[in-house]
C-alpha cells in the first residue's frame, strides 16, 4: 500500500468499511509510518468534534411565522395548495384521461373513414405480400402485328420520324434561352 492508497482508505477504515485483507494492509502501513498513524488519529478526533457540535436551533418565532405563512398560502386564491387528484385512470388525471380518450376516438374515426370500402384496393400498387410468381410479359408475349395497325399509323398527321419538326419548334426557344457559360 502506498501513501495515496492509504489516504483514500482512511474514511473506510474509520467506518469499518474495509475488507479483512485491506484492513491488515492499512494497519500495516499505519504501524510503519508514524505520521500516517497521527493523521488517522487526528481525523478521528476531528470527526468526533464535528459530531459533538450542537444543532443550530431555530428561533422562538419560527413556528408562529411558519403558521402565518401557511395561513397566507392557504388563503391565496391564485396559488392553491397542490392536492392529489382523487382518481386516476391508467395514471392519467380525469382531465388528461378525457383528452386522451377524445384523441383516440378521433384517430379511430378518421382511420375508419379513410379505410377502403368492401375490400377494394387503393389506387396505388398494393404492398408486397410475398409469393413472387413469374408472369409472362404481356407485351413480349403478344407482339403487335404491323399489318393490323398500319392504317392507323398512316392516318397520323405528325410524322414522329420527321426531325425538322423538332428543330422548328425549338428555334425560338433556343434563341432566348442560353446557358450561363454560353458566350454567344
Amino acid at each position: 500500500m502506498d501513501r495515496y492508497q492509504f489516504e483514500d482508505a482512511i474514511s473506510a477504515y474509520l467506518e469499518n468499511d474495509l475488507s479483512l485483507s485491506e484492513r491488515k494492509a492499512f494497519e500495516s502501513y499505519m504501524n510503519e509510518n508514524a505520521d500516517a498513524k497521527n493523521l488517522v488519529d487526528s481525523i478521528r478526533s476531528t470527526m468526533q468534534s464535528i459530531k459533538n457540535m450542537p444543532d443550530i436551533k431555530t428561533s422562538d418565532k419560527f413556528m408562529p411565522n411558519l403558521s402565518r405563512r401557511i395561513e397566507i398560502e392557504r388563503n391565496r386564491p391564485s396559488k392553491k395548495i397542490v392536492e392529489r387528484p382523487s382518481k386516476t385512470f391508467f395514471g392519467f388525471t380525469p382531465l388528461y384521461a378525457g383528452i386522451m380518450t377524445v384523441l383516440v376516438a378521433s384517430f379511430i374515426t378518421v382511420g375508419v373513414s379513410l379505410w377502403p370500402e368492401n375490400g377494394k384496393s387503393f389506387d396505388h400498387a398494393p404492398a408486397f405480400t410475398g409469393n413472387i410468381t413469374e408472369t409472362p410479359n404481356p407485351v413480349l408475349s403478344n407482339p403487335v402485328t404491323p399489318t393490323n395497325n398500319a392504317p392507323v399509323l398512316a392516318t397520323s398527321e405528325i410524322d414522329s420520324a420527321d426531325t425538322t419538326l423538332n428543330k422548328k419548334k425549338n428555334f425560338k426557344l433556343n434563341d432566348k434561352v442560353q446557358f450561363v457559360k454560353d458566350q454567344r
Binding site: 474514511s11 473506510a12 487526528s42 481525523i43 478526533s45 476531528t46 470527526m47 468534534s49
Partner: peptide
C-alpha cells in the same frame, strides 16, 4: 460521495490540527 467525504475530512484535519 465516499471519495468526497474522505477528501473533505483530510482537508478539515489540516485546518483543525492546531486545535489538538
Amino acid at each position: 460521495v465516499k471519495s468526497r467525504i474522505n477528501r473533505a475530512r483530510i482537508q478539515l484535519q489540516k485546518e483543525l490540527k492546531d486545535l489538538k
